[in-house]
Design a protein around this nucleic acid. Structure first.
Length: 196
DNA sequence: AATAGGTTCAACCGCGCTTCG
DNA sequence: CCGAAGCGCGGTTGAACCTAT
């Protein structure tokens, strides 16, 4: 963590979880100067972080309009629909889900939807391999999904297997009602930074 | 009550694209 | 036009948390 700088300017770069103090500094700086030019922003704000890290933290967590947790049934359907259309273009998908970030959608897809698709797909193939052996070529999307390879447009052909019932409620997973259980909430942070 | 295994998510990394001098 | 720097995106990782035994 505390790398010894050999030159005066190339000071140590912090990594890992952000502290509350860093969050406040970043929020305060952006409130005053706006976002963008992340490298110089990081320097000017006095954060020992890379511009990349600041950008990520801001976009995925600190932005006032960011919504976290509780992905709704409508959002989930939209994600599935758009993913079928565009593949792993998470940022593109995120643009159609106000307040959601590409990172969150990506995580949601990988940890929840993809898992269920895999399971459903296994059932599906178990059912169909018997009688539809020779159709496997034009339905290559299933292997795409399970291998999580470069999805790209190949996924365009993806349609949920018949056994894949988008029973949204079953998907919902054990999200807490709000994810502010252990940490300061965004409102807290914003009110703190407004006090500045 | 302890712990092993599974799940989730914040954050980092590498690569490719764009912009600027 | 070319090279360097910055930015954005998608993939991956690892720590924290949760659940089952």
């Amino acid at each position: 963590m505390d790398k010894k700088p050999c030159k005066s300017q190339e000071v140590e770069v912090r990594k890992g979880p952000w502290t509350m103090e860093e969050d406040l500094i970043l929020m305060n700086y952006i409130a005053n100067h706006g976002e963008g030019v992340w490298n110089s922003l990081a320097r000017s704000a006095g954060l020992k972080r890379t511009g990349k890290s600041c950008r990520l933290r801001w976009l995925n967590y600190l932005r006032p309009d960011v919504r976290r947790g509780n992905i709704t049934a409508e959002e989930q359907l939209l994600i599935m629909e758009l993913h079928a259309k565009w593949g792993n273009r998470w940022s593109k998908i995120a643009k159609h889900l106000p307040g959601r970030t590409d990172n969150e959608i990506k995580n949601y897809w990988r940890t929840r939807i993809q898992k269920h698709i895999k399971q459903a797909d296994q059932n599906f193939t178990a059912q169909t391999t018997v009688d539809h052996h020779h159709h496997s070529n034009d339905q290559a999307s299933t292997s795409q999904l399970s291998s999580c390879g470069p999805a790209d447009h190949a996924v365009e052909s993806y349609s949920p297997p018949s056994s894949f019932n988008p029973n949204i409620e079953a998907f919902q997973g054990p999200y807490p009602t709000e994810s502010n259980d252990n940490f300061w909430s965004m409102e807290d942070l914003w009110s703190m930074q407004l006090l500045n």
